[in-house]
Nucleic acid binder design. Structure first.
Lengths: 256, 256
DNA sequence: CGTTTGTTTGACGTTACTCAAATCTCGTGG
DNA sequence: CCACGAGATTTGAGTAACGTCAAACAAACG
């Protein structure tokens, strides 16, 4: 019996430790692979389409997949995104979410057979743990995103995104802490993700560049030149804006 | 052997079909119950605290639990909320999320022993399915929330929240479609959830009332008097605001 | 019943959206 | 491989929506 099908031997889901297929045994990987569909998607392409009915469980091998929504009046939103290693189970997902899935960068996904997936979930505890943790971390990431969207200031959102995105990805083997990293998001998509207009995002980046907090290099590369001030903007440690206080606190302050 | 421990016999997680404990057999319910901690929380109380280290998996029996975040400058956010039936696994959750969990209404939660929980997840497929679906639906709800937060107009957000909250809950046995329902959210919390100020929420409700789209009755009851217009505001079907158009579209329009 | 906390209303200010136009980038087809 | 053109980015100017501040009122809680 071959150790793994050819298509799996070149896939990150199989090759990277901690990813779903890396913990499957030969029999499992063969069974899963036999009914699955690895696919490459160009930026902007919708994920799934007619495939989605039969393959509602997908693994993200490489790239970024976003949940895009177009409001009836034409405004767009990116509510969340998934990254390499994520297992996304769309059974029971709102039609909105299913239909909105699209590649934000060039992407490789693998449509998994739900039957084979469920069998593995039931028989292989390691795989179950990985899938569970992936779903958990998707959920936590969206929670973080929600918390940021509610922030009022555009600059805070932009600084936060830069800081978070860096720690999510790596460059040249340096993991998540390098001053340099690639940010292949288009400004339009970033605007949709942060609930801003492209113009505002553009102005935000210019402002960060003028303040010498970041530098923008060719090929979507970013260099963080002043991490302290970036974090201050992102996480608000130096924000001088007044806190909203209770009447009681105000009374105390006035009395003193 | 008793069929179920006393504390479980009065718990929604055990009594309502589709909830986690309802599919456990006697042996499982006893094992889980022996190491778990059912607790009642008043509104505003933090969930967990010192308990969280040993019981990081919780079931929501009744009420609403929110993920609250206080930014360093004092502004608050509610990034997500959990409702009855949800199983929340906080292992691996960011400290932010763990510490921010608090009761938005009077709430009953059950701190589950992670060991017993994992055993059940591995041995009982029904329980596994319920927990998985719960986590999925939490994720989808937060995604919806994110999509709404990115909307620019305050009135759209408020109308959306009313429409969604109604369908999430029931009143007098009529499920999710009754004109009448209770909305025990305080306006401050709603403001934090929608990324608005309490004043703006207040003005929004007044506007809906003046337009005779809703009525506000005692005891936090809401009556929807004009569902069509509410949906129009919430989901944008009649929004007259101009869509952002591409240059190509504009050129076509000008030519005609 | 008194104190604290939440809600409502009004007046005002600021931020980020809107609109417009020039420039740049990237994907596509020749 | 290059050239073209659609789409993306950038910049500027004006404006509307929502946040901020303040103060009075109402509700909740012990």
């Amino acid at each position: 019996m071959p150790s793994a099908p050819r298509q799996c031997k070149i896939c990150a889901l199989y090759n990277r430790t901690g990813f779903f297929c890396s913990v499957l045994n030969d029999e499992e990987i063969n069974r899963l692979s036999a009914h699955s569909r690895p696919t490459t998607l160009k930026r902007g392409r919708q994920v799934g389409m007619n495939l989605m009915d039969n393959w509602p469980v997908i693994g993200i091998c490489e790239g970024i997949v976003g949940v895009r929504r177009i409001h009836p009046d034409g405004r767009g939103t990116i509510a969340a995104f998934f990254v390499d290693g994520d297992i996304v189970d769309l059974r029971g997902a709102p039609e909105n979410v299913r239909a909105g899935l699209s590649a934000l960068t060039e992407t490789k996904v693998c449509y998994l057979s739900p039957g084979a997936f469920d069998e593995i979930m039931s028989s292989n505890p390691d795989a179950r743990t990985i899938a569970w943790k992936s779903l958990q971390s998707q959920s936590f990431r969206v929670i973080e995103h929600s918390a940021e969207l509610a922030k009022k200031q555009a600059m805070e959102k932009i600084a936060w995104f830069i800081a978070e995105f860096r720690s999510l990805h790596q460059f040249d083997g340096v993991n998540g802490q390098s001053r340099f990293f690639r940010m292949p998001f288009r400004h339009v998509d970033l605007a949709d993700y942060l609930g801003l207009q492209p113009e505002t995002v553009s102005r935000g980046f210019r402002s960060l560049r003028d303040k010498e907090i970041i530098r923008m290099l060719p090929d979507s590369m970013i260099e963080i030149t002043d991490q302290d001030r970036l974090f201050a903007m992102a996480y608000g440690t130096t924000t001088s804006g007044p806190a909203r206080q209770t009447d009681a606190e105000i009374r105390v302050l006035r009395a003193s």
